[in-house]
């Protein structure tokens, strides 16, 4: 019975996640990428270094 509930919960979460992805995350992501690409995934940054300095040792 416990396994059934775990299966049910996971399935519901997975279904809701898929809906959230299509309705929210995908459009949001599209705008996000147009404005900013913080992880430089799709655009190679024009930079002499790819380091991220910590706030303490900002250079």
């Amino acid at each position: 019975m416990k396994n059934f509930f775990i299966f049910l919960t996971s399935s519901i979460i997975a279904l809701v996640s898929a809906v959230v992805f299509v309705v929210l995350l995908w459009p949001l992501g599209t705008v996000y990428r147009l404005v900013k690409d913080p992880m430089t995934l799709t655009r190679k940054p024009n930079s002499s270094s790819y380091k991220h300095y910590s706030t303490l040792a900002e250079k």
């Binding site: 898929a18 992805f21 995350l25 992501g29």
Partner: peptide, 11 residues
């Protein structure tokens, strides 16, 4: 954030 960056391919 990763999913935000990769768009539909992450579905």
């Amino acid at each position: 954030s990763t999913y935000l960056n990769f768009g539909l391919s992450g579905i």
